[in-house]
Design a protein around this nucleic acid. Structure first.
Lengths: 199, 199
DNA sequence: GAATCAATTCAACACGTGATGATTCTGCAT
DNA sequence: ATGCAGAATCATCACGTGTTGAATTGATTC
């Protein structure tokens, strides 16, 4: 009874905080930064608006906490770089499209992209995070001198695919099975990561 | 004096309408749909806010008029499809990167992409227009049965490149000369348009 | 049972937005 | 000179936003 931290109600006992964060993730992903309102988030979470600000401070800070990468780079990158180098494009393509098949994975990716497109400040933060946690380690794993450019080109194809398939909703892509797209995109990623870039 | 259309001041005599449209294009491209305000547009054009609504009606209709393709498909497509088929990827890549080198071309492309990412309704309209005016004709020119998928895949790479290079601002891409990127992207577009998609 | 502290809600502010209708200004035709 | 249509502005509305501070509720500890 001596080291009891504090008196009063248990903090975070009701899980409301998590409910708000979940609702925020969903709305940011579906609507982007601007069109997401604190009131909408609060309604989804079933709480009052003021509680959102009370827990997370201003909207920007809430977004920073809600926008996280759809996977853990530390878990994914070794699996990519360890296997045979001639297969890295296909492994990457498969991983991306598997992520897109899961609702939460898809939601997080579209959320990042929508936010990056709509808010300059969000774009800056996302660029830094993706670059630091994903592209730079990938480039270092590749080892080539032009590896940063290679990793960025691969990233551009991935972003474009998500954008065209899930944000804009281009029909031939939305109706294609993941397997078909893996087959189509894999050689492209392989080209960017290990092929000859100059003709 | 009988067939004179109407009396009164010449319509559009002062060029203000065009000034408003130009300002709208610039702001939509830089800020996206939501963060672009009619007041900002009016300030740029040096007129009162009400004049914007007076000329173009509601914001959505203004956007529809401001968001135009950065080039005329009727002029570009023949040049793409007429040449040798083994070169179509390179010609397309060069055309895209040349467009991106011009400030107005770049502005229009980023504008379309920012708007598509931020507003569902804008995304719908842009998808329809790009599909109808660009992808379908391109697919018909290709003639293959899976041409719509091919054209969409090529489109996804182009969108991703613009997104990564000019919206997010990934450094290795922003600092690469157009020529380098043409060399890197051309074989990819060639693969999508004429290569074998299944392994 | 009383005190305490966090969780939660209530109520309201200050602000910027898109939109509208009335009003003034200006150049051309009569 | 006069009338008038269109260009341009003024003043204002109704609304939704993010944010803030006070008030309320409920569980926990003394």
């Amino acid at each position: 009874m001596t080291t009891r931290p504090r008196a009063g109600r248990r903090p975070g006992g009701s899980g409301t905080r998590e409910a708000i964060l979940d609702a925020a993730r969903r709305r940011f992903a579906e609507l982007g930064y601007d069109r997401t309102t604190l009131r909408g988030i609060a309604a989804d979470a079933g709480v009052d608006v003021a509680l959102v600000s009370h827990y997370f401070g201003p909207k920007q800070r809430l977004f920073a906490q809600a926008a996280s990468l759809p996977f853990d780079p530390a878990l994914v990158l070794p699996g990519l770089l360890d296997g045979p180098r001639e297969d890295i494009g296909r492994r990457l393509a498969r991983h991306v499209l598997e992520t897109l098949d899961s609702p939460t994975g898809r939601r997080r990716m579209t959320g990042l992209i929508r936010a990056a497109a709509s808010e300059r400040q969000a774009a800056d933060e996302i660029r830094e995070r993706v670059s630091r946690e994903l592209l730079v380690p990938l480039a270092e794993g590749l080892g080539a001198p032009d590896a940063p450019l290679r990793a960025s080109l691969a990233g551009s194809q991935i972003v474009g695919l998500v954008m065209a398939r899930h944000v804009v909703g281009l029909e031939p892509l939305t109706e294609s099975a993941s397997g078909v797209l893996v087959d189509a995109v894999a050689p492209v990623l392989q080209h960017y990561l290990t092929g000859t870039l100059a003709p």
